[in-house]
Design a protein around this nucleic acid. Sequence first.
DNA 1: CGAGCAACCTGCATGC
DNA 2: TGCATGCAGGTTGCTC
Length: 272
Amino acid sequence: MPELPEVETTCRGIHPHIIQRRVKKVTVRNPSLRWPVEPQLPKLLSGKTLLSLTRRGKYLIFDFGNRFVLWHLGMSGSLRIVKPNEAIKTHDHVDIHFDNNNILRYHDPRRFGAVVYTTEPPLDHKLLSDLGPEPLSENFTAEHLFQRSRKIQQPVKSWIMNSKVVVGVGNIYANESLFNAGIHPLSPAKKISRQRYDIFYQEIVNVLSNAIQRGGTTLRDFVGGDGKPGYFAQELHVYGRGGHPCTTCGKPLTEKVVAQRATVYCTNCQKR
DNA sequence: CGAGCAACCTGCATGC
DNA sequence: TGCATGCAGGTTGCTC
């Protein structure tokens, strides 16, 4: 579920229901996430007020005043607001109860997600300190991509998914933005011209902001308990369409595994 | 240092 | 119906 637009949607969806509220209780049903959840977490957060909730890359940052929680949703995680009468399901691993009767509930079948407690300033934390720019900020530019790619022999598709280059470009949007930009995913990053990075940059921005907007649509029923985002399915050009006709030229799309991730492209429309 | 890839874990679709 | 297989939206941390 969580690419950057999904995490952003989650952030906006839960924010109004828990911001400036005091933690009454924390329940950890299964601490075996990507890293073990800090055993003292309930004690450490109880009585604290959530002062801010922000996002950096695909991490949510909960600020309880000199105590922070960095929350990553992994591949299958979701966070939503529930009421105390809502039944607990399999894979509901963590609950944070707030003083307005709202519960923040974490659900994650695969447990690739993480709940990391820290007292360090979050942006100095090892998990966040080396992250590349936010794709929708002014720090992210075509020039940045061009400069950083000059020595990189790696396929541009794998490279752009590296969060040290830019955060938030996951497998879906790497495939989509490369298609939109007409760039072959296997091109070595350093072989791509400055002009083409202009286009690629613009397509990354387009595709992500578009998706966030659509996430905004999902936002409405988010707290209502649906929890099933479906914003992306329609307008995808290549992702999940290997073998199907290219939406531009009609030629069957090629699907290959690149760096262990499904990669779909049109050999006719995307050039090296 | 870059590059490649195994690992973490469960659910689901597919094929026999 | 049962079982084996492969694949899934992410990221770290190991090897070479």
